[in-house]
Design a binder for these strands. Sequence first.
DNA 1: GTTTTTATGATACGACTGTATCACAAAAAT
DNA 2: ATTTTTGTGATACAGTCGTATCATAAAAAC
Lengths: 202, 202
Amino acid sequence: MPKTVDHDERRSMILGAFVTLAVRDGLHAVSMRSVAAEAGISLRLVQYYFKTKAGLMQSGLAMLENVSNERWEKRVLSLPEASTAKETLRALFAEALPTDRQRREFHLLWTAYAVLGQTDPEIPNHMVVAGPSRLLQRVVSLFRQGKALGEFDIELDADSEAAVLLGLIHGLSTAVMIGLQSGDAAMELLTCHLDRLDVGKK
Amino acid sequence: MPKTVDHDERRSMILGAFVTLAVRDGLHAVSMRSVAAEAGISLRLVQYYFKTKAGLMQSGLAMLENVSNERWEKRVLSLPEASTAKETLRALFAEALPTDRQRREFHLLWTAYAVLGQTDPEIPNHMVVAGPSRLLQRVVSLFRQGKALGEFDIELDADSEAAVLLGLIHGLSTAVMIGLQSGDAAMELLTCHLDRLDVGKK
DNA sequence: GTTTTTATGATACGACTGTATCACAAAAAT
DNA sequence: ATTTTTGTGATACAGTCGTATCATAAAAAC
């Protein structure tokens, strides 16, 4: 084997250029050539590492999910060790709402992929649903845990509350994205929503 | 003046072809030529009636908002005359959730425009926010009305509740769109959410 | 040292894009 | 009847796209 170049490192460098362009010009406007130029390499190399454009797009989505999962993981682990379910959920709000550049980029790209997945056979729907589906299960178990520990009303349905909360997060994120709501207002609304689920509030 | 052709009718016929293609192939994949072919006319005519592609895209968004407003208007007017605010809001759920082809198409296209508005200077953000902004005000006044008539708890903040409800509608719609939730489940969740705002539930 | 495998560059092909131009038909205005 | 305005077709231009091909450098394997 030749030149001994770190394949994975190269791939993620190219994906970095891909994300930069997708955020700046829109996911649909990314081309093999523009990625090559942004990464400072030749078109041939982008082809070499990702074969086709569909491969590049799919890898982009996969990386997006990975990065987001890692960020959320990290944030949860950096919480005080015996945190309540409510505090963990508030950390989720902070991670999900597009209140700074990184998070705006994620929400923008994920939504673009979700739209693309509806019409483009190259982005199969299961790749789009996989992330939210895992997250939903996680939130469900957080609600179960919160109920068991007496944080939340024992009557409430964990599946329903998780679905509502995730929907609310995404919807408010979009509202923030288009400038209908401020990031602070959205955070406040989510907090209030969660507070309504407290024990004894019925 | 010649041939006396109905300009507006022609424009909306072309926009019909535009929507058909945008839903089938994705908003980004629509081209002047494909619209011409779909409408059964020549490329020149699409140019003639919409001048540039940006003009076509902007008109598409404007038509989308108009059609949606008309449908919502019609649905509210067809309600029994002295309907409660809650019932009017439930009509909004039914209109907004992507439970059939028409409503799926609207949600898909609107989201595509919202994404496009983040990166494409040809789709200024204010065109995207205008619709949701009007809708928000409307929902706010429905909450005020509901409070005044004793449907809702007098303590709740109309602005906050409206923002939450709209966010929830959009978020659940996206969940339905990607297949994370069923349309029926989303409708049920929205109904339950509204029921929690009833008087005496605190 | 030759062979084989990995990595990279240059370039070409056909298809498609938005826009512009030239020509012309047909109806209204004069 | 001529002129002017409105509507329509055909076509050309320059650019970009994804993909494929040919050549080759360089390192490892033998």
